[in-house]
Amino acid sequence: MNTKRLSAKVEKALSDQMNKEIHASHIFLSYGIWADDKGYQGIANFLYRHSQEERNHSIKFMEYILNRGGKPKVAAIPAPPADPKTLTECFDGVFKHEVDNTTAIYKIVDLAMEEKDWATWNFMQWFVQEQIEEETLAQNLIDKLKIAGGDRATDESLFTLDRAMQSEPNDVPLAQEATGSNP
């Protein structure tokens, strides 16, 4: 008996997104290393946490594919982009990545609707909501840096920004612990 509950097209789209989330994890890890090397330990800590969150998202996709009788395909992960030259470039890169990821999420939602795969459509709603939060977070980074003075910010204002990001909570919830009431 065939117990696979995903079409080949949906399974591939979900696997591709799983790999996209891993790539995002590498991008944020790379940005975190850059920030750490520049002396921005608070910003680095934020980016390291964000890297772990993206990895958790990939695991969420992996588990869903497996639970629906599919087999996720792990692909080669492209190298992260070159190091940013400024904090503005770094934060703009975070925002650009999140917008790109939102577009990919929406394509899977569209595919699930087209195929009337309501289980996958429902599963993807968590990610739709998550991307609202991710884009807002990235926009807030850009706004905070602008308030601090952008690339012309004083050392004192950058120090304050870095310290504020250092004090953010350090716990990243694991994807497998997410529930309907605690996404």
Rank of each mutant, 00 (worst) to 15 (best):
N2E: 14
T3A: 12
R5N: 12
L6W: 07
L6C: 10
A8C: 03
K9P: 00
K9F: 03
V10C: 13
V10H: 06
V10K: 01
E11Y: 08
E11I: 07
K12Y: 03
K12V: 08
A13W: 01
L14M: 08
L14Y: 07
S15L: 08
N19Y: 13
K20T: 14
E21S: 09
I27Y: 07
L29N: 14
S30V: 00
Y31K: 09
G32P: 13
I33P: 10
W34V: 09
D36H: 12
D36T: 03
D37I: 00
K38P: 00
K38H: 14
Q41G: 11
G42F: 07
I43L: 12
N45A: 15
F46W: 15
F46R: 03
F46S: 06
F46K: 05
L47A: 06
H50M: 10
Q52I: 14
Q52N: 11
E54D: 12
R55N: 11
H57S: 08
I59N: 00
I59Y: 15
Y64I: 12
L66M: 14
L66T: 13
L66G: 05
N67L: 12
R68E: 11
G70M: 02
G70L: 05
G70D: 04
G70F: 06
P72I: 08
K73R: 14
P78G: 09
A79Y: 02
D83F: 04
K85E: 10
L87N: 00
L87Y: 01
C90Q: 03
D92T: 08
D92P: 00
D92Y: 10
V94C: 04
V94H: 04
V94A: 08
V94Y: 05
K96M: 05
H97G: 06
E98I: 10
V99K: 09
V99Y: 02
N101I: 14
T103C: 04
K107E: 15
I108A: 13
L111G: 11
L111N: 13
A112P: 07
A112Q: 13
E114P: 02
E115G: 13
E115P: 09
K116P: 00
D117N: 04
D117E: 03
A119V: 09
A119Q: 14
W121I: 00
N122V: 13
F123I: 06
M124D: 09
W126C: 05
W126S: 09
F127R: 10
V128I: 11
E130L: 11
E130G: 03
E130Q: 15
E130H: 12
E133R: 04
E134N: 10
E134W: 09
E134K: 08
E135M: 02
T136R: 09
T136F: 01
L137P: 00
A138Y: 04
N140T: 04
N140S: 11
N140V: 01
N140Q: 11
L141P: 08
I142D: 02
L145W: 02
K146I: 02
A148E: 02
G150K: 01
D151G: 03
D151K: 01
D155R: 10
E156V: 07
S157T: 15
F159E: 07
T160D: 07
L161N: 04
R163L: 14
A164P: 00
M165G: 01
Q166S: 12
S167P: 00
E168F: 07
N170W: 08
V172A: 05
V172L: 03
V172S: 04
P173Y: 03
E177H: 10
E177F: 10
A178I: 01
A178L: 09
G180C: 00
N182R: 12
N182H: 11
P183S: 03
P183L: 09
